[in-house]
Computed example of a mutant assay.
Amino acid sequence: MSEQSPQPSAPSPAAWLVRLLALIAGILFIALLTALLPPGSALAVLLLDHHAAPPPNSPFLYPLTIQNLMHLLLFAGFGELTVRWQALRYEAALMSAHLLPEDPRVVLQSHDLPAIRAQVAGRHDGERGLLPGLIDLCILQFQSSRSVDQVVSVLNSSLELSAHRLDLQYAMLRYLVWVIPTIGFIGTVIGIALALNLIDPNAGAQPLGEIAKALGVSFYTTLVALIESAILVLLLNLVQTREERLLNQAGHYTLVNLVNRLYAGH
């Protein structure tokens, strides 16, 4: 291979820093909504549970509300998605780096493999660099066994393990997708309980208007939670599908341009 392979993009910020910045962005988002929406307005009550005067018997004092907690969890999800997107971009750059000879007439023999290993060295670790890792593993297996069948077996096993590892990396996002609507339902149950507390069994006339209003507000947490959960589910599926497609492309690229071209000789 005579042409120089392009290097992947510069290393991304550490995952913990991305997650921290996402939480800070969530706090700024809440602060911005607080500044823009007058307390007691319809949007302020819906999005922030920010009333002009604290509701009677409410355990939540602004800004410590269910809605604000869900906003922070939403931005935590955005942070996780950003981490996965950065990993996806790195893997996509490696797929475009032409790490293997792609001329269909090329046959790879043992003396060709050290140069390929040297090219992929340092581009993969336990978490990133799927394609270089596959190439390195297949070359090592071929150098030790001289068997293409064993290389294919190792490639398949590595792809299965990579798919499982990829699925585990979305565990936190799946939890956030679940916990946001759960917290919304909890907020609704608390709101209904507070609304029912307005009923005075000893009073002749009940404040039906206040009870109805309190019941309506109690469902806001569920509404906001379902919308935010739907946003996260959409983005999660888009990013995960792209990562799984890259995994399949890496396996196919390695099979076509390395495994199928290996020649053990005599």
Rank of each mutant, 00 (worst) to 15 (best):
A44K: 01
P38M: 05
I66C: 04
L28T: 07
N57A: 13
I30R: 07
G40M: 10
L28K: 04
L28V: 11
H51I: 01
D49A: 12
P59D: 11
D49Q: 15
A52I: 00
L61H: 12
S58H: 05
A42I: 10
T34R: 14
P59Q: 09
A52H: 08
T65W: 07
G40R: 12
P38Y: 10
P38W: 11
S41H: 08
P39D: 07
L33T: 13
L37M: 15
H50S: 05
S41D: 00
L46P: 01
L46F: 15
H50W: 13
F29P: 15
F60A: 00
L61Q: 06
F29I: 12
P39A: 01
L48W: 07
L28Y: 01
L43D: 10
F29T: 10
I30E: 04
P39M: 03
H50C: 05
P56Y: 03
T34F: 13
V45F: 02
L48Q: 03
A52E: 12
L64G: 00
H50Y: 15
A52D: 12
L46N: 03
P63Q: 11
I66P: 02
A42C: 04
F60C: 05
N57V: 02
N57S: 05
I66T: 08
Y62S: 04
I66F: 14
A52P: 00
L32G: 07
H50D: 01
A42M: 14
S58M: 05
S58L: 03
V45T: 01
P38V: 09
G40V: 02
A44H: 01
L61K: 03
A42N: 12
H50R: 15
A42T: 15
T65M: 02
L64W: 13
H50T: 00
F29L: 14
D49I: 01
